[in-house]
Amino acid sequence: MATTSTTSTDAPLTIAGTSLGSRLVMGTGGAASLLALEDALVASGTELTTVAMRRVARPALGAAGAAATGDTSIWGLLERLGIRPLPNTAGCFTVREAVLTAQLAREACGTDWIKLEVIADDVTLLPDPAGTVEAARILVDDGFTVLPYTNDDPVTARHLADAGCAAVMPLGSPIGSGLGIANPRNIEAIAAASPVPVILDAGIGTASDAALAMELGCDGVLLATAVTRAADPVRMARAMRLAVEAGYDAARAGRMPRREQALASSPADGRVAVGDATAAPGARDNLDLAL
């Protein structure tokens, strides 16, 4: 008799025709050091990782400037680990800033993949839906593979997919909050309706959040701070890898129906009697149900 074993790798996450061996997309912000980040990235199993674009440091400013380059850079690290870079437009508050940053990222990183972020304000850090859709249209027309960071709103997600985005990335809760998935019904609705992969982005605090995202139907999870600011980033990275795989399998395993009442899972017949065990059958109704 043949048995079939299914694993998460049977159906890889495919974005714009490119298959990824992991459904966990990592960010790199907040890591204490490049060395610690490297260990966490390896433990996470990720094959796609975000980077930000910033001005290079001027020589006179020394290593304390904005951006290190060369072998000590995040760029060199990802190249060495064979991880595909996903540049972002973090910190952009306007469509023009986001489009120029994306175009610079394409030149610098040699990829037309872009994590589009158009942020509404620097307090909530929530996506600006109108600006995000407008920038997405411009970048799709310009040949980019656009993965937009968006609100947990099914209608905005639909507009982004209609605009030609290669994926949509709704937030679970605000960036860096670690509050998990604030509106699971909306995430489920986005995942159910989306013609393109849905990657939950932002808000993940711990492994159960990542598993829930996958159980709600997401195709992947993007997280950074949950790992980089954990007390043990490497261990949390491994936990996230396992959680994404567990949630993916659970979502496809056909979960049992929920019940309002308890239901015994052992047979009701043949139970041991002690003393005068002639209890009325009516008192054992929910055990009878087990048969």
Partner: peptide
């Protein structure tokens, strides 16, 4: 002139 490179982020 803007001269940029990839840094940790996101």
């Amino acid at each position: 002139v803007e001269v940029v490179t990839a840094v940790q982020g996101g």
